[in-house]
Design a protein around this nucleic acid. Structure first.
Length: 571
RNA sequence: GCGACUGUAGUCUAGCGGUUAGGACCGGGGCUUCCCAAGCCUCUAACCCGGGUUCAAAUCCCGGCAGUCGCACCA
């Protein structure tokens, strides 16, 4: 077991608080559980994570990014299912005060307790004398508890709104715009990051379960009949550590997982691998990362198949990304509730001539016979096909009666149609990232501690400060020279930090603790030296604590190379 | 939401009815040719909040808030 596993999460949270990564919100007023603010370093680290995620999807895969509202009107969540699925009816025992899920207590008394409202549940308790299962006490009022924060939009409280529990709905409701933007083509990949809100009953474990949290969501709309991915062949032999439904962990290649039926399709498998790649580049330890498949009864209401990226933290295995195949659920639901078109028109390579057998009603005959009912009966007749005709008679159900329609009232015809495509509701592949959890994982996996010395081995790309700049002494012009260098680095867009207090060792330690990968020191040789060291500085590597001496004019170039991943030892 | 435990400078902690509330680290200023938390001088800074008991409360009691753990809940 390695050192990081034995660490106390409190130690890291303490560091985070001291050094300005995260702070408990509203601390001067006593704080609120499940709410944290990002401090100066945390904000930069968080932004760096977002940038890498954005780059991976936008530049890497050609996805587009949007930014939608956090307050949504009620119909959005009626359609999405969150009003129903995020609500529980809770009842408290008058005696022992224990809370119970009301629908669980009447499971034997009603075929489908989920369909009951608070009144219905309450009367079921009264009629059947249901008591507290723990102490046989009387049960109190049935209360509805929804995990979404409710508000009203505008005055008069007529329009109910909710703070979004996920950013995904903002993408789904914009599907018609996005689809047009993408010039009516699939696949269509859309990303969005932002805050989501869930009124958790009991937030625990620091930043792991928050009431207001940051997520980075990706919705990829694909043709349901084409769940492949262009770049799949390039990664089919990469390894994945999987825990499928059967609970047996195995490490196999992407393609073995797909062809073995473990992962449903290529595109889902591709983005599982893609997530692994992104997470490891962000600094998640590959040895403490696995993908676990959801069990059927664990799956969210919208998912067809779902894999969680789980990381091993001091809290245990924790989900940080969920990669779900949401099928056509979301778009179908929004189409139904909004009555808007939410489908893709899939053009055939060339229009098809289709011959269709149909029945045509003879209106001239039907009119006099059925008078006012003729129109409806004609419609029913035309719904049928020639195969339904028996002995020249078509039986039609009308107003509870069966009418025998004889063949003088209709004719069988062959219709030639030109069909240039078909409507399909796209399926959605959703990699949804818990940003705060990824943030915490990166810190915990980077945390190294020997005796009293602490180092955060953050990946250079995410590190909030890239380089510390010090004068060896605060005198003799060393500080002036170091400040110049600091300025030069900042002007080149490199996040630098100037420090001239205490001893040189203390400054290295300070930078190590916040994960700064390199420190540059201006010493006496920089100012004057007869061995050719004039105008050179030392650069020191955080993880090896090795030093190199390089010309001061090369600093920007060297640091930029190092950030891109050049090995320090090769300098 | 329930139960147990806990709450003292930025951090870790001592004090457990009467203390100028002590220390360490961190942080600030200064000195020292100072490259891995070096040394010396110096400074800042705390009893979670609200009631109560008492001559006297950081200390005892009650309530609140927050944290940890367990139960319950949970994409």
């Amino acid at each position: 077991m390695n050192g990081a596993l034995q660490m106390n999460a409190g130690e890291l949270l303490s560091l985070c608080k001291r050094r300005g990564f995260i702070w408990p919100s509203f601390e001067i007023y006593g704080g609120v559980a499940g709410m944290y603010d990002y401090g100066p370093l945390g904000t930069v680290l968080k932004d760096n994570i977002i940038s890498m995620w954005r780059d991976a999807y936008k530049r890497g895969e050609g996805f587009v990014e949007i930014d939608s509202e956090t307050v949504n009107p009620e119909p959005v969540f009626k359609a999405s299912g969150h009003i129903d699925e995020f609500s529980d009816f809770v009842v408290y025992c008058q005696g022992c005060k224990e809370p119970f899920r009301a629908d669980h207590l009447v499971g034997d008394l009603h075929p489908n307790p989920d369909t009951l409202d608070a009144e219905g549940l309450k009367s079921l308790f009264v009629e059947n004398g249901v008591l507290c299962p723990d102490c046989d006490g009387e049960l109190g009022e049935v209360e509805e508890f929804n995990l979404m924060f409710k508000t009203t939009i505008g005055p008069g409280s007529s329009r109910v709104g909710y703070l979004r529990p996920e950013t995904a709905q903002g993408i789904f409701v914009n599907f018609p715009h996005l689809y047009r933007y993408n010039r009516e083509k699939l696949p269509l990949g859309v990303i969005q990051h932002g805050r989501g809100y869930r009124n958790e009953i009991s937030p625990r474990q620091g930043i792991i379960r928050l009431r207001e949290f940051n997520m980075m969501e990706v919705e990829l709309f694909v043709d349901p009949e084409d769940k492949g991915w262009v770049r799949y062949p390039a990664i089919r032999d990469e390894m994945l550590r999987l825990v499928p439904e059967d609970g047996r962990e195995r490490s196999i290649t992407v393609d073995e997982a797909v062809s073995g039926g473990i992962i449903a399709n290529e595109v889902l498998a591709y983005f599982i691998w893609f997530t692994k790649d992104l997470l490891t580049r962000l600094g998640v330890d590959g040895e403490r990362l696995r993908f676990r498949q959801h069990l059927r009864d664990e799956m969210a209401h919208y998912a067809m198949d779902c894999w969680d990226a789980e990381v091993l933290l001091s809290y245990g295995w924790t989900e940080i990304v969920g990669i779900a195949d949401r099928g056509c659920w979301d778009l179908t639901q929004h189409a139904k509730w909004s009555k808007q078109e939410m489908s893709h028109f899939k053009r055939f390579d060339e229009p098809k001539e289709v011959e269709r057998e149909a029945i045509k009603a003879k209106y001239r005959e039907l009119g006099p016979l059925f008078k006012g009912d003729a129109k409806e009966i004609a419609r029913l007749i035309e719904e049928r096909t020639p195969a339904d005709i028996e002995n020249s008679v078509l039986k039609v159900d009308f107003n509870g009666r069966t009418l025998d329609i004889t063949d003088n009232l209709f004719e069988a015809v062959t219709i030639n149609e030109k069909v240039s495509g078909e409507k399909v509701v796209p399926h959605v592949i959703e990699p949804s990232h818990g940003l705060d959890r990824i943030f915490y994982t990166i810190l915990e996996h980077a945390y190294r501690r020997d005796d009293e010395y602490t180092v955060l081995s953050l990946r250079p790309e995410v590190a909030p400060i890239k380089v510390g700049v010090f004068p060896l002494m605060t005198r003799d012009g060393l500080d002036t020279k170091a400040r110049e260098l600091f300025r030069t680095l900042n002007d080149a867009g490199i996040d630098a930090y100037y420090d001239d207090s205490g001893s040189i060792g203390k400054r290295y330690a300070r930078m190590d603790e916040v994960g700064t990968p390199w420190c540059v020191t201006v010493d006496y040789e920089t100012l004057e030296d007869d061995r050719g060291l004039k105008d050179t500085v030392t650069i020191r590597d955080r993880d090896s604590s090795e030093q190199r001496r390089i010309p001061i004019d090369d600093i920007i170039d060297v640091v930029q190379k190092l950030i891109k991943g050049v090995d320090f030892a090769s300098l």
